[in-house]
């Protein structure tokens, strides 16, 4: 008889616990109902790429001296530099330059080593095409400037997480006047100038 009562007791306890856990779970899901989505509604909203964003490569034909350094530093020797030696002037004559973005890994080594700065990285990342051969950009396509997210009237630009004010997680409806968390680059530069050197001891960390 005692054993039977014990069984009944554990039975009731189990049922009570099941109900309690169910209630806990339901309160979690119910609480989620009042949280709004922070999702970026791409193509209507887009994140502003950061300053050092490594997007599609931009190329200026007129600056290029056909030195082929970009080819040497490229992990897979990707850029195609099509030049001929002009026998009379004894100079290289550049005819064509192309990079296949279907193969490029956007490491930025070519941009880093280019002696004349004719290569640079843009913030363009929407490169999808219906045919992979369309990703092979020649010097004309490489010379086009991308449309800017902040100037495109059909797109609502949103700041990335690190560019939001302190403690803010949702990029929607943040006034443009709100500055990002931490010091801006020009503020760090001001702090590094020699006339402020005596203050350096009091303010030890520029990121404060």
């Amino acid at each position: 008889m005692k054993n039977f009562l014990q069984q009944i007791n554990s039975y009731i306890k189990e049922a009570y616990n099941a109900g309690k856990y169910l209630y806990n779970g339901l309160s979690v899901t119910f609480d989620h109902l009042r949280r709004r989505p922070v999702t970026v509604q791409y193509p209507y909203e887009k994140l502003i790429p950061s300053e050092r964003y490594r997007g599609r490569i931009h190329y200026e034909f007129d600056k290029c001296i056909a030195c082929e350094v970009c080819v040497r530093v490229c992990p897979i020797n990707l850029p195609v530099v099509d030049w001929v030696m002009n026998k009379e002037t004894k100079k290289k004559e550049l005819r064509n330059y192309s990079i296949d973005f279907g193969v490029c890994i956007f490491c930025g080594n070519c941009v880093e080593y280019c002696p004349t700065n004719c290569l640079s990285m843009t913030e363009e990342y929407e490169l999808a095409t219906f045919d992979r051969h369309n990703l092979n950009f020649d010097n004309v396509a490489l010379g086009r400037l991308p449309t800017n997210v902040t100037t495109d009237p059909s797109v609502k630009p949103l700041r990335e997480l690190t560019y939001l004010p302190k403690g803010v997680m949702d990029p929607h409806e943040i006034p443009a006047s709100d500055t990002r968390v931490g010091k801006l680059p020009e503020e760090v530069y001001d702090w590094m100038r020699p006339e402020h050197n005596e203050n350096k001891d009091t303010v030890s960390n520029p990121n404060n």
Binding site: T29, H32, L33, R35, R36, P37, V38, T39, Q41
Partner: peptide, 10 residues
């Protein structure tokens, strides 16, 4: 709609 709200979707 409620599923979306519970998962913070739209």
């Amino acid at each position: 709609k409620i599923s979306a709200a519970a998962q913070q979707r739209i």
